[in-house]
Structures are given as C-alpha cells and as structure tokens.
C-alpha cells in the first residue's frame, strides 16, 4: 500500500547521483560532497530559506526574551483608559501600536508574549514525535516479521483517530491545561506519520550493501541501527518533521481557539483570537492581529521545511 503521509519520496540515492554535478561546482574538485553538505550548499542560495531563517530567529528571540520587544506587560488590563482603544499605526513598537483588546490589554504586548507558548509547543511536540516515531519506525522496518505487524497495526490505530478530536478528548480530562499538557496530548497522537516514513526508509536502506557488509563483519544490531541505518534513513524523516512543526503550531492555536487548548493566564494567540471573535463587528483588528501572527509563524516554518525538502530531495528540482 502506498504511503499517503509522505509527500516526498525516499531520498537515499542522491549522494551518488549528485557526484558528477557536485565535483565541478564544489570547492574541492574530485571530492564528492555528502548529501548533507550538498543540501547546505543549496540552502544557502535559496531566498525562501533565508527569509524563513530570519523570521524563525526573530520568533525564537521573541519567545525567549519578550522583554526586548516591549516594555508593556501582556496581563496589565486597564479597562478605564484602554477599552478597545484602536491601533495607532504610527507608534511603532509602543504599547498602543496595535491597539487594546476588550480587557484593555496591549495587543502588541500580547502578540509578543504569545510567541513563547506557540514556539514551545511546536518545537517540543516535533522533537517528541520524531523520537517516538523514529524508534517505532526503525524497529518495525529493521526487524520486520511479527514485530512489524504489531507495530504497524498500532500505528494504523493511532492514525485512525481524528487528530483534533482526539487531542480535545485528552485535554478535557485535565483540570489545569498547561503548555505541557497540550504538548502531551498532541505528541500522544502525532507520531504516526514519522513512524511510517521512518519504517519505509529503513526497509529500503537495510538491503544496502554496506548494511549487509557490516552484518557480515559481525557488527552488533545496535551498532548497525545507530551507525549505519540511522544516518542514512533520517533525511526523509527530517523533511516530514520540519514541515509538521508548522502544523503543530497551527494545531495548538486551533485547540486554544476552540477553548480546549491552553487556558488563561497563559498568553496564547489562539486564546486571543477566540475571545476576539465576539468583537468581530466593532473591533476586527483585535482578531486580525493575532491571526496574522499565527499565520506568519506557521508560514516561516513551512517555508523552512519546504526549502529543506527541496535541498534533500533533488528529484523535485
């Protein structure tokens, strides 16, 4: 059955396939570049990659040091003075730049402080999902047989649960919905696509001559898996993981929007969009600004993933 989750095909060949082109363009003639340095060579010249890199760095700094961007606090509510005060577009980076929300809180400050929850959820879920998926996919792909049957069916089972619905069910059971609870609920259901991609990738790699040679030389299973299989099978996994990162950020915002993700006092773009939808008619900017912020963040990670995919999968060129 064709794998529907992988939008890309396995990329284990390019290292050899690229050598003729690589030798005349590369810095050291005669020495073929590896898949990774070849990919890096491409990435540095890709404008989409550079733009997304700048945006991601900016968002990362915003998530770690929000105080650098604004002196206002996202939780200071001054209803008397600031109730739904419209944005002053000229006052760049001032607390009143993007206006105030229905509780008289600075929207600019909330947008800045909201980055932390989004980025944390996106990054941690991606790491958790990649590690789980890799272990399960590699075990299933390498050992095959009954282990593969069991692990693949378990993967199918988790894949069949609708993601947002499943995450909502898990989240309702928690009284306090912190960032970590949201991460847990998403990671619990999200590892399946990585596991499928890793399994497929390992199955093609394990027949390679160097794996057979390592086995013949008496290398231990652990050594074969970590030193020979993993480095060669990981490229498609990284591609799927980087693209999924943006999706997890969107999913967190969606859950928070539905009122079942993060909860106050955590500052989250999803919560802000959700509360703003009651003011849709008289103050649309309260809704539009955090929405744009979510979209830009997801877009940065998607562009990043897309560029990495193109670099690692030369068939797309």
């Amino acid at each position: 059955m064709p794998d529907t989750t992988a939008l890309t095909k396995s990329t284990d060949v390019p290292a050899e396939a690229q050598t003729p082109a690589a030798t005349d363009a590369g810095p050291a003639p005669g020495k073929p570049r590896s898949l990774w340095s070849d990919a890096w060579h491409d990435l540095r010249r890709n404008p989409l990659f550079l733009i997304s890199m700048v945006l991601i760095l900016l968002l990362a700094v915003m998530a770690i040091f929000p105080g650098l961007f604004t002196s206002a606090s996202p939780r200071d509510a001054n209803l008397a003075e600031h109730y739904l005060q419209h944005p002053k577009w000229g006052n760049f980076f001032a607390p009143d730049w993007l206006g105030y929300d229905v509780q008289g809180r600075s929207i600019y400050a909330r947008v800045v402080y909201g980055a932390r929850a989004s980025i944390t959820v996106g990054v941690v879920v991606t790491i958790a999902v990649t590690l789980t998926g890799l272990v399960i996919g590699m075990l299933a792909g390498y050992f095959g047989g009954w282990l593969d049957t069991i692990l693949s069916r378990i993967t199918d089972v988790f894949f069949g649960v609708p993601f947002i619905v499943g995450a909502m069910v898990i989240l309702t059971t928690f009284e306090e919905r912190s960032v970590w609870v949201v991460i847990l609920s998403m990671a619990f259901l999200g590892w399946t696509s990585i596991a499928r991609v890793a399994r497929g990738s390992v199955i093609t790699i394990k027949q390679a001559d160097y794996v057979v040679a390592a086995k013949a030389l008496g290398a231990s299973t652990t050594r074969i898996l970590t030193r020979h299989i993993l480095p060669n099978a990981i490229a498609p996994v990284i591609v799927v993981a980087t693209i999924a990162l943006g999706g997890y950020i969107a999913a967190e915002a969606t859950l928070s929007f539905l009122g079942i993700g993060l909860a106050e006092p955590t500052v989250s773009w999803g919560i802000d969009v959700s509360t703003a939808k009651d003011q849709l008619r008289n103050a649309p900017y309260v809704l539009v600004i955090p929405s744009v912020m979510v979209s830009i963040t997801v877009l940065s990670f998607l562009m990043f993933g897309d560029a990495v995919r193109n670099a690692l999968d030369p068939k797309m060129r």
Binding site: A253, T254, F257, S291, V294, S295, I296, V298
Partner: peptide
C-alpha cells in the same frame, strides 16, 4: 494558504 489555520 497552508500556513493560514482554518479558523483564521
């Protein structure tokens, strides 16, 4: 379009 979440 992919980047803009459905709720937005």
């Amino acid at each position: 379009v992919i980047a803009i979440p459905t709720f937005v």
